[in-house]
Amino acid sequence: MKTFIAILLIALSSSALADGRKLAVPDNPLWQTECGSCHMAYPPQLLTAANWRQMMKGLDSHFGANATLDAKEGVEILAFLERYAARDQRYSANTQRITDTAWFQREHRELSNSVWTHAKVKSRANCTACHVTAERGDWSEHSIRMPDGRRWE
């Protein structure tokens, strides 16, 4: 019985994460500025600590961009990312792309291929093209606007 409840709790907590309400983090101006200048500051919860460590080692060639930090900034930001990182392997990708994780693929499985290449989206990593309130921490489904302007029903 106890194991059953434990399993149920784990199942409930991971679906609560999937519904996007658990993606908030406390204010961290350094992370917000440094990791939010070229794209939105992606929630630390969406990759594992091992993924973040790997990424932070190669900021000089970061997905085709030069995102180098000084050593002190790098250490502080990595500590923050690790602290809120996912523990579940569904949030892991050896490319260090959130968009390559099993979680992301499953969550977005109902989207058609053409929507990702839409001129207003261009990249799957352009979360805020659809999740228009995500930078305020609101990822909820009713706040989604598809590139054609429609809501997601």
Binding site: C38, H39, M40, F63, A65, K122, S123, N126, T128, A129
Partner: peptide, 14 residues
């Protein structure tokens, strides 16, 4: 082209 206007990151569209 005009530094007084808003720009857009060519890869991420930010």
């Amino acid at each position: 082209d005009q530094p007084t206007a808003e720009g857009k990151h060519v890869v991420t569209s930010k």
